[in-house]
Design a protein around this nucleic acid. Structure first.
Lengths: 253, 253
DNA sequence: GAGTGGTCTAGACCACCCT
DNA sequence: GGGTGGTCTAGACCACTCC
């Protein structure tokens, strides 16, 4: 007798599981609904818990699940679009951006940042920490590196550190004319401090957006912003409603 | 006696391992160099192979390692910058873009794409498949969806399918005036077909760039491009040399 | 055939959240 | 205290590459 499937390469179990569960999410679950726990799901599908977790890991990476230790696994809402397109002549903190300045310190930046800033390796810069919160959830943490020469009149300013000083640095920065900017997006994993602020575990996947700000032929500032890759989608130019994903799902009740 | 560390939360082993190996990569290995195999590394660090793999998984996610089944684990070169910033009035395939048109079919698009195109659910569209190769390596695969009304004069064209027809669709598309475009970037995992073209395993992390092209008040086309997240970095506006990463490493000999 | 990374198992213990 | 997800182990077998 002939074989119906000539040369089958067996599909990994976790991959098949991911497909099955993914389809179930679309048809049988509403956003926010809680799934059976991992031990039960594993038993139900007849696999080891580690294998089931491999499937859930993927679904979480795709932003379709949300897992919280001690609580459970829930169906994630669609990713929220975060507009990262700036008019090429906007400094950070200009106009109505939703970032919250959190802190400001003076320190030597990592070597890679120093290189981007064209500063010497041991030169201290202002480091402004900001947080982006939308819909009540933290979605991004940013470090903005500002060499002292970019904000020459800062010395007389009020606060020595903290949010007040952070806002002062941003305000001083806006006095420069911005000639242009540069941007790159890549995948990374959350460092411990970012993870804490983003309410995730260290190592969680993040989208890292690095930006250089040019003024007067120099790199006047640079920023490294880490966005939660599970819950958000970076949009450029008003693509906030763009949503290419699985079939539309039922809303939470 | 007092405890020197008041309330220590033990750092996971794999996290510590990742740090240790990451530092070793910077100081003791050159790009392209092959690491000891996983069983030996696990033994050397006194952990189970699964734990070691968790650390390597992270380093691979960050683009610092490259693993190939049957071959071994090598130190990855720095991510290659791929410029995805388009002049707002450029159609895909215009001017000197490096994409290779591979194929063209006529099919009903996924529901989410149909929604983005404002077409009815059962309407067939041209689907152009393209591949982006830089430095001899495939870095991205794209599906471009073009509703038939966007390329009205296509019917008389030569080839019924294949690369020739793909180029014909792109050529016809360029006859429209492009009013603007939209863009979003998010994290995804490679589908089986994309994975094959990108020389990765299914489920590998990818950066998904979705673009809508507007013309004459309509969405004239939409594309979904998947970029290898391990090997590339999306750049906007000439940030090709921007590289915020770990300390610079030695080059391959 | 030997060696590599990829998948899978069946357990164990831990950190965290809720009640 | 009971339940959840997160970490870890010590194995096993498989798919792939290269010699």
């Amino acid at each position: 007798m002939g074989t119906t499937q000539p040369e089958t390469v067996p599909e990994p179990k976790y991959w098949h599981l991911k497909t099955v569960i993914g389809e179930a999410l679309d048809s049988e679950f509403a956003v926010g609904e809680i799934l059976p726990n991992e031990r039960e799901l594993a038993a139900r599908f007849g696999v080891a818990r580690a294998t089931l977790r491999q499937a859930l890991d993927q679904l979480e990476l795709e932003g379709r699940l949300q897992r919280r230790r001690g609580v459970g696994t829930t169906v994630a809402p669609p990713r929220v679009g975060v507009d990262v397109s700036t008019s090429p002549n906007d400094w950070p903190g200009a106009g109505g951006d939703a970032w919250q300045a959190a802190d400001c310190t003076l320190a030597v930046p990592p070597a890679a940042v120093a290189r981007a800033l064209d500063t010497e390796g041991d030169e201290t810069v202002h480091i402004v920490r900001r947080l982006l919160v939308t819909h009540g959830r933290p979605v991004a943490a940013e470090l903005l590196y500002v060499p002292a020469p970019s904000v020459p009149d800062l010395s007389a300013i009020d606060a020595p550190a903290g949010a007040t000083r952070a806002r002062a640095v941003l305000r001083e920065l806006r006095r420069l004319t911005l000639d242009g900017q540069d941007r790159a997006v890549e995948l990374g994993s959350a460092r411990a401090d970012d993870a804490r602020e983003l309410d995730r575990l260290p190592g969680a996947p993040v989208l890292v957006v690095t930006t250089r700000y040019f003024s007067g032929g120099r790199t006047a500032a640079a920023s490294v912003a880490t966005y939660r890759a599970d819950t958000c989608r970076l949009t450029f130019g008003d693509a906030g409603d763009l949503e290419i994903r699985q079939p539309s799902r039922r809303r939470a009740c």
